[in-house]
Simulated scan of single mutants.
Amino acid sequence: MLDATRQLAVVTGASTGIGLQLARQCAEHGFDLIIAANEPEIEKAAEELRIGSSSVETVQADLATIEGNEALFRKIGGRPVAALLANAGRGLGKAFLDQDFDDIRYVIDTNVTGTVYLVHKIGRDMRARGEGKILITGSIAGYMPGAYQAIYNGTKAFIDSFSYALREELKDSGVTVTCLMPGPTETEFFERADLMDTKVGTQAKDSPLDVAKDGFRAMMAGDGGVVSGWQNKMQAAIANVVPSETLAHQHTKMAKPGTAETKR
């Protein structure tokens, strides 16, 4: 059971990758944890995270659905959430018109609907208490039109914008909102998104541990956002001045099927 005297962090998408590393940062800094994902690997993650005096409880639920998010909310059981790390997300490669619409809908529901619903539920409780920290995983993908990843990049553009808007609304409430914006990171994301025949899927990527450390530090400091990695910072800065049509063309070179780099 969770210790009622310790602060509670809730981390979604925590079975692998950035989410697992974010949960590890929370555990190492003295939070009790509720971690959630839609796959049984969440139990293995919990075993890895039970370090020191941290308690870890799990929820295996589909966070693309209202029902899945309600299951997570029931697990919280009214306990004050000190930190919500909303990291659950899905990608989808290939051309938009070649994608199955059920897959398209699932990406939107995971990245946008489920995230917004959970932030709405927990954020209201934080505002009522006058304290809390929210970290939302966006992406530098939100800065550019994502040819051959049109739905994913579109959802991240929403999340990046939403995070900063919510931060402004809560600026005098005691609740801070931070947007973590990584670039390509070494996780299972690219395989799940069917991007392993692309340049972005096969090139060298950032460490999820480094990304998580950047995000956790920014959240604890109450920063508005952090782009993880200096190359990604450069790419985000360039995206602010380059025409959208040019950005979409550049993205094609990274994400179009058949652009995978040959490994020597």
Rank of each mutant, 00 (worst) to 15 (best):
G13C: 05
G52E: 10
A71E: 15
T176D: 06
Q149P: 01
E261F: 00
A128E: 15
G93Y: 09
D100Y: 03
V227T: 13
V177W: 03
A95V: 12
H120R: 15
M181C: 14
Y152E: 11
E48R: 14
I238M: 14
K233G: 02
E168A: 14
L170H: 01
F162D: 06
L170Y: 12
A4I: 11
K133W: 04
T155I: 09
G201V: 08
R264V: 10
G30D: 11
V226N: 06
N111M: 05
A37M: 11
N232R: 03
L170D: 00
G174T: 03
A141I: 02
T246R: 13
E261N: 00
N69I: 01
Y106N: 13
Q231R: 15
V107N: 09
S139Y: 08
I108D: 07
A147V: 06
A239T: 02
K156Q: 08
N38A: 14
G154W: 12
T202N: 11
T176I: 04
T176P: 02
E261M: 09
L209R: 14
L84M: 09
T178K: 05
V200M: 15
M1A: 14
K256R: 15
E57R: 14
I151T: 15
Y164I: 13
P182C: 06
D109F: 04
I151C: 08
G154H: 12
V211F: 01
A61C: 08
G78W: 01
T202E: 00
A255R: 04
G224N: 12
E39M: 08
A204F: 00
P184G: 02
A236I: 01
H251D: 09
V107D: 10
Y143N: 09
E39I: 13
T113W: 05
D210S: 12
I108C: 12
T185F: 02
A236T: 01
N153L: 06
G30C: 10
L92M: 12
W230T: 13
M181G: 00
V11N: 04
I35M: 11
G146N: 09
G17S: 10
K44M: 09
